Simulated scan of single mutants.
Amino acid sequence: MASEVARPENAPQHCPGTESEEAGKASACAGCPNQQICSTAPKGPDPGIALVKDRLEAVQYKILILSGKGGVGKSTVTGLLSRALAKSDSEKNVAVLDIDICGPSQPRVMGVVDEQVHQSGSGWSPVYVDDNLSVMSIGFLLGSPDDAIIWRGPKKNGMIKQFLSEVDWGKLDYLLIDTPPGTSDEHLSAVTYLSQANLTGAVIVTTPQEVALLDVRKEIDFCRKTKINILGVVENMSEFICPCCQKSSQIFKANTGGAEKMCQDLNVPFLGSLPLDPKVAKSCDNANDCFEEISDSPVLTALENIVKNLTAKCNEK
């Protein structure tokens, strides 16, 4: 798999991969803008893989949070899951790693947008949200939240390598890795660097409508091709909860049965559904802890069930 996932940005379809002895020399390399770089670069396994393995040895469960399409609430679900896991047992240590390089959302979602990262001899120190909940994101390294990250694939991949190998998490029970939508450079880099780190698996977030499920099927195929264990699918925004009367209604109609039916068809675990509660959305936008602010929300009740199912899947691993 290494030669496949180490393909450079804009590589031709039959790219031999940067670790191959044929890198930059094969017929498929003709015309590739990276041909000269690949032909002269050192070959062999990326030493970063071993560094990541050593750094994450004290992390029990390492979970990728994926989505096929943007806008399904993946980052919000990641933040809610991390808070729910941390609050379910104060003895458990939970962390979130935000590798959505161009759209880092976790500093805002977790309510630590004004914090800064500190570096010591043991590496970068994550930002603590609670005593047992921490987060790391490139958002902490920007001069302003409005600064754009305009990087090509190799630079983004280098940043992901740094996050995985240089953050001093300490001993963790859960590390949730928030990824960008799709199946692109960031995902391939994460899979490569975690290939020897005993990755627990992936949670895939979707919404009920078919246009989102189409892309989630591709995400499931990506996991199977890269041999990532699928812990389950979370259906977000399954219904809308009116903030006035508390009645529910469907905004994204599940014309084909929604995520649960798709999971049955593809033999994938279904972890549960989360309703859309405007009060929770507002709480996250305002960088507040919705567990303290609106503890009676049906979203939090649904989260309890999802966390129960997720922890059971992790324990099976």
Rank of each mutant, 00 (worst) to 15 (best):
P33M: 00
W169K: 14
L214G: 07
A28I: 09
F240N: 03
D131T: 08
G153P: 03
R55K: 14
G257P: 09
G158R: 12
G272A: 14
A41K: 08
F252S: 02
E293Y: 06
T256C: 08
P181L: 08
Q250V: 08
E304T: 14
C290D: 13
C263M: 07
G48L: 02
S120D: 10
C284I: 15
G170T: 11
I138E: 00
P12G: 15
I138C: 02
N236D: 07
D173H: 08
V94Y: 02
S249P: 13
N305T: 13
E260Y: 12
V216Y: 01
P16G: 13
G139P: 07
G153S: 13
N309H: 14
E316P: 04
T207M: 04
F163D: 00
H118K: 11
I230F: 03
E316R: 09
T301A: 02
P42Q: 09
E91Q: 13
N267M: 10
T18P: 07
G143L: 08
I138W: 01
V127H: 00
Q60W: 01
P154C: 05
T206L: 10
Q13I: 14
L85V: 07
Q250P: 10
T76F: 00
W124L: 06
V205A: 05
V127D: 03
I228G: 00
R217A: 13
S125Q: 15
L310P: 02
D289N: 13
S165K: 05
G103A: 04
L199C: 07
I101F: 09
C245I: 03
K171E: 12
A84R: 04
I220F: 01
N236P: 03
N132F: 09
K227I: 11
K261E: 15
R224I: 05
T256L: 12
P107H: 02
K279W: 04
S283F: 02
G71H: 09
K155G: 08
C223P: 08
P45N: 10
C263R: 10
V72K: 00
P181T: 04
Q106H: 05
P154S: 09
Y174L: 12
T207F: 04
C314W: 05
T206R: 04
C223E: 05
A30T: 01
A6M: 14
L176Y: 10
I49N: 04
G17S: 07
N10A: 13
D46Y: 10
D89T: 12
I177V: 15
K218W: 09
T192Y: 01
N286R: 15
Q264M: 15
E235D: 01
E19K: 12
E22H: 07
I177C: 02
R108V: 11
D146I: 11
F163C: 07
S273Y: 03
V211F: 08
E9H: 09
A30I: 04
L276N: 03
V299T: 14
M159S: 06
L214Q: 11
A58K: 10
P145E: 09
A190Y: 00
E166T: 14
G44Y: 08
M110R: 09
P154E: 10
A259I: 14
V94G: 08
